[in-house]
Simulated scan of single mutants.
Amino acid sequence: MSAPVLDVRDVTKVYGQGDTTVHALRGVSLTVERGDYVAIMGQSGSGKSTLMNILGCLDIPSEGSYLLDGTDVGVLDEHQLSVLRNRKIGFIFQSFNLIPRMSALANVELPLAYGGVRPAERRRRAVAALGLVGLGDRMGHEPNELSGGQQQRVAVARALVTSPALMLADEPTGNLDSQSTRDVLDIMDQMSLSGRTVALITHEDEVAARAKRVIRLVDGDVIDDRRQAPVEGPPPSLLSGGVR
């Protein structure tokens, strides 16, 4: 059997010292198998953002261990962490994080450029990824020429383009209107149906309802971890074909 995509073991995270000490995570353990679709929920201060940063290799635990797709993150140096992030994780952020004066196509190509993929190949894969999220006719547009929902779909395409082991989404619908929220969640459903591993950080019940599994955090502890019947989403699309 293959290793879990996420394997978190007794992870704690402590900030500050003395009277200012904050225990953001208190011995969190969880595993996420390949192809699972997980929503991690919690209110402000629950530790979900800290956990997201650790899962995304943007921060390290104070104690405990974290294995990403079988690799022990704790033994890697900064360069190795950067390579791991680029190859193994597709990030989707609430604020889109697109480069303003670059086209949608150029934004989607960026992770491949950092990974040393040749120009012709990265162009082919970026075009395919934008087509998968329904933006084949917007490839030359810059972010300020796109709606919020379209910008988030560009961000999803950028996350997809490396065919990562993990799609990690941090409040991906937080800045979107209702229709754009449904559009982006439909794409997340399609990614899950095509076998991709998705971990989504959210405080919204509507968003978490799309996932197969919901993990709830309170004060740095996992208080609930259960399977659920996700909301009926769209049928599988061309996402099942990947972008390679």
Rank of each mutant, 00 (worst) to 15 (best):
A199I: 08
L146V: 03
S180M: 11
L112K: 04
P164M: 02
M139G: 06
G174P: 09
E121G: 02
P111T: 01
G140N: 15
L132R: 14
S192N: 13
P119T: 08
P164I: 03
Y114R: 12
S194N: 04
R122N: 05
A128N: 08
M102K: 15
L112M: 12
R182W: 14
N175M: 13
L135E: 13
E121V: 00
G134D: 10
A129L: 01
D170C: 06
Y114K: 11
M102W: 10
G131W: 03
L110G: 03
G134E: 08
G148S: 00
M102V: 09
R158S: 11
S103I: 02
Q150N: 11
E109C: 01
E145Q: 15
V156I: 14
N107Y: 09
A159D: 05
A113P: 01
V198F: 04
A106D: 15
Y114F: 15
L166V: 08
N144E: 14
A165R: 09
A128W: 01
M167T: 09
T181C: 09
G134P: 09
V161K: 03
S163H: 05
L166M: 07
V161P: 00
L135V: 09
V184R: 07
L200E: 09
G116H: 02
G115K: 06
L98I: 11
A199N: 06
Q150K: 13
L146A: 01
N107M: 12
Q150E: 15
N175D: 13
D186Q: 10
N144K: 12
A129W: 04
V133T: 09
E109N: 08
V198E: 07
L185I: 13
A104V: 01
A126H: 07
G140T: 13
M191D: 08
A120R: 14
L112I: 00
L193I: 06
R196K: 10
N97V: 10
